[in-house]
Amino acid sequence: MIGARKRIGGSGGSDNSWPGFVDALSTLLLVIIFLLSMFVLAQFFLGQALTGREQALAELRGQVAELGNLLKMERQANTSLRDSMAELSASLTAANADRDRLTAELEGTKAALEGSSSRLSELSETYEALEAEAQTLRTQNKISAEALSEEQVISARARAEVARLQRDISALREQLARLETALETSEERDRRNQAVIVDLGRRLNRALASKVEELAGYRSEFFGRLKEVLSTRPEIRIEGDRFVFASELLFASASAELGPEGRAELRKFAETLMAISKEIPPELNWILRIDGHTDNRPISNYQFKNNWELSSARAISVVQFLISAGVPANRLAAAGFGEHQPIDPGEDAFALSRNRRIEMRLTQR
């Protein structure tokens, strides 16, 4: 009975929470394993994305390094003559300073020589007076031998002083001759440096003129090719050294967004520009300037407060499209002039249409 009660009591009071705890722990472990798997996968895909970006960044850095080397070579070529001129100018300045110093020393030496000559004259007069007085005293024999001896000592001292002054004058004359020689040498070096500077200036001017003429030749060829490609559109024209696009061909009214027709014409323009740019030597630092112009009618909307902003935004839109078409960004520049550079002073619709334009000018930095 006692044993039966124990079994019955044990069966009725057993704890069933342990299996449930094991199930919860297993579920939690599975969730943790799933989260770790997702984390590893995310890390893997993130590493792949970062590797691709690092490769693209490395390529961009290589291109930037190449452009930096080209720019450095251009700057070195352009500044070599300037460095030579700066060095020669510094040498000329130093030579002028030396010449001024030698001139000052020469003036001081001359002043000392004049003082010494004056002192010599005074001592000579004193000596002659003493000699005359001694001769008179000896002739008259009115003074004693001791007084005569003192006069002779004074005379000897005067003669020694005269001899010393004569030596000093000789030394000063030699120093004066050396200073004059050094001054002549400095002036000769100054003349040679000035001649070299003049020659370098002429060479630099000739080099700059040659670069300008070379760029003018490429500009003429560039405009000639563009005229052949785009001559069928009346909205596109060449005026002097500028290629002019009517704004109506590129943009809608009061807008800076390029339309389909404008994109097509600008794509032809970019292809021609890229073709001719391959023939331009790399040391010729050319740039295509995009100028935006509007008419004189005021504008104010949610995008643009005035014509300045509209003309600048249109020029920037053209630059951005040319960059997307393959033109290097370092060869482009954008500028906005608003209504302040009209080409037609009239106020009719035709004049206003002519003044709304995009101008492109091939120039040199």
Score class of each variant (00 low, 15 high):
139 T>W: 01
51 T>F: 05
36 L>H: 10
108 G>H: 03
313 A>Y: 00
308 W>D: 15
286 W>A: 06
133 E>N: 04
319 V>I: 03
48 Q>T: 06
205 N>G: 06
317 S>D: 08
195 A>N: 05
319 V>W: 02
29 L>S: 14
93 T>V: 07
345 P>I: 06
305 K>C: 07
336 G>V: 01
354 R>V: 08
72 K>H: 14
274 M>Y: 03
144 S>D: 12
105 E>D: 13
61 R>L: 12
187 E>S: 14
172 L>D: 13
117 S>E: 09
40 V>N: 14
204 L>D: 14
30 L>P: 06
339 E>K: 14
277 S>N: 05
233 R>L: 03
116 S>G: 02
290 I>K: 07
87 E>K: 08
181 T>S: 15
325 A>N: 03
94 A>Q: 15
200 L>D: 01
7 R>Y: 05
14 S>H: 09
21 F>S: 15
113 L>M: 13
56 A>W: 02
222 F>M: 12
302 Y>L: 14
161 E>N: 13
311 S>V: 00
26 S>A: 06
9 G>Y: 10
12 G>D: 12
183 L>H: 10
272 T>N: 06
312 S>Q: 11
220 S>Y: 04
185 T>H: 13
189 R>Q: 13
135 Q>P: 00
246 A>Q: 15
330 N>D: 15
108 G>K: 04
265 E>W: 02
154 I>M: 05
69 N>M: 12
316 I>H: 14
162 V>G: 12
32 I>T: 07
256 A>P: 00
167 R>C: 04
153 V>H: 01
177 A>L: 07
189 R>L: 12
267 R>P: 01
109 T>Y: 02
327 V>P: 00
54 E>P: 02
48 Q>Y: 02
254 A>T: 11
312 S>F: 04
162 V>R: 15
228 E>P: 01
291 D>W: 06
24 A>N: 09
102 L>W: 02
232 T>W: 12
222 F>P: 00
222 F>H: 03
181 T>E: 15
349 A>C: 03
218 Y>E: 09
12 G>A: 13
277 S>G: 11
94 A>D: 13
141 N>W: 00
221 E>W: 01
232 T>K: 15
7 R>F: 05
281 P>M: 04
59 E>Q: 11
203 R>M: 10
7 R>C: 07
114 E>Q: 08
228 E>L: 08
240 G>I: 02
115 G>L: 10
267 R>I: 09
32 I>Q: 04
7 R>S: 09
160 A>M: 11
319 V>N: 01
22 V>E: 02
268 K>T: 05
